[in-house]
Design a protein around this nucleic acid. Structure first.
Lengths: 134, 134
DNA sequence: GTGTTTGCAAAGTGTTTGCAATTTA
DNA sequence: TAAATTGCAAACACTTTGCAAACAC
């Protein structure tokens, strides 16, 4: 891999309290370089490998969780067989294509919820997940 | 275990095209005997064991999937670490208590969705899953 | 009797962990 | 140099599978 400074990604990592290592920079570049993404550990490793980035599966898992804890990614639960991570941190929902296990964003304006139940006593809302399975 | 006829459960299984074996009858009795339930394979096995029903984990898994395929149960994806099955087959949604991985039904009247996006071309709606994480 | 179901143990899958070697600051 | 990070391989948790024995009809 090349080692240009990637100032933007490095600053993003530093801001998140993560040491900008070669592996994290490479993954962050793949994840945050372009538009919003949905990845699994396997898919991201495959992508990295194809881009000639040398990295282990364990590090991909570690990085995905570190990015998630740092608020750079969020985890989506749609399929029991694998973890999906989403680079889109804004409020939004998902289509899930069952035929090929693919996710697609639904902009939050495209779903309007006009009534929600009151929360159980003493609980605070963590998130409302909506998945439209097609 | 006792072996009263359990006519109702047996008919339910037959109607679903499932041979009413001792194990299936026992599980169906636990699952459909009372109110709506949320179970995992482990929790159902524990319950069966406590009720002195002799059954293996493999058979619990098999039965849960057979019941699901037969339309007697539905699977809920909320937690990557285990499969949840719900005996409530009517349209409804869920609270998920992250502190103890517990599920609670939300009656469909308690959530009103006043706008949904149009489906991707050529796709049919399988289900709208809503999970409120608290 | 025949085809289905069960149950064990083994295999499988995706994920996490322990720890020595490497890298970053 | 000191502390954090990586990467391998082993461990893990849950689920599925293969197949001989048991069961339902």
């Amino acid at each position: 891999m090349n080692n240009r400074p990637y100032t933007k990604v490095i600053n993003q990592l530093k801001a998140a309290g993560l040491r900008p290592t070669r592996q994290r920079i490479a993954l962050a570049k793949l994840l945050f370089g372009t538009c919003n993404r949905h990845v699994t550990a396997e898919s991201l490793l495959a992508e990295a490998t194809q881009a000639k980035i040398q990295i282990s599966l364990a590090t991909v898992y570690n990085s995905l969780h570190q990015f998630t804890d740092a608020g750079l990614l969020r985890e989506i639960v749609v399929d029991l067989n694998r973890c999906y991570f989403d680079t889109n941190m804004t409020e939004h929902y998902h289509f899930f294509y069952e035929e090929n296990n693919r996710l697609e964003d639904i902009h939050s304006d495209d779903i309007i919820i006009s009534k929600l139940p009151s929360l159980p006593l003493g609980k605070s809302l963590k998130r409302v997940d909506i998945v439209i399975r097609v």
